[in-house]
Amino acid sequence: MQELVRTIASALVDHPSQVEVNVIEGEKSLVLELKVAPEDMGKVIGKQGRIARAIRSVVKAASLREGKRVTVDIVQ
């Protein structure tokens, strides 16, 4: 799941090497913290969060099989 977020984010930003995904694992949940270069923030959020919403949608689909609630947080 972590790799999925990294793959998508890296394809969207200008500085793929600065993409970081941290995992915070709970019993029934998984939080993925996505961190990108400050100037790339817009590239993973988009107008009115459209890109962030699309990323979450794909990640949610992938998580259905794992039976865990997965959330993607974009952090600074």
């Binding site: 459209r50 890109i51 919403r53 699309a54 949608s57 794909v58 949610k60 689909a61 099989r65």
Partner: peptide
């Protein structure tokens, strides 16, 4: 089926991301 999602929501999201990634 998981790639399509409710009313094609996941498919549309993936399509949107693919367009962004390629057009860059």
């Amino acid at each position: 089926g998981i790639l399509i999602g409710r009313r094609g929501e996941t498919l549309d999201a993936l399509q949107y991301l693919t367009n962004l990634a390629v057009n860059r």
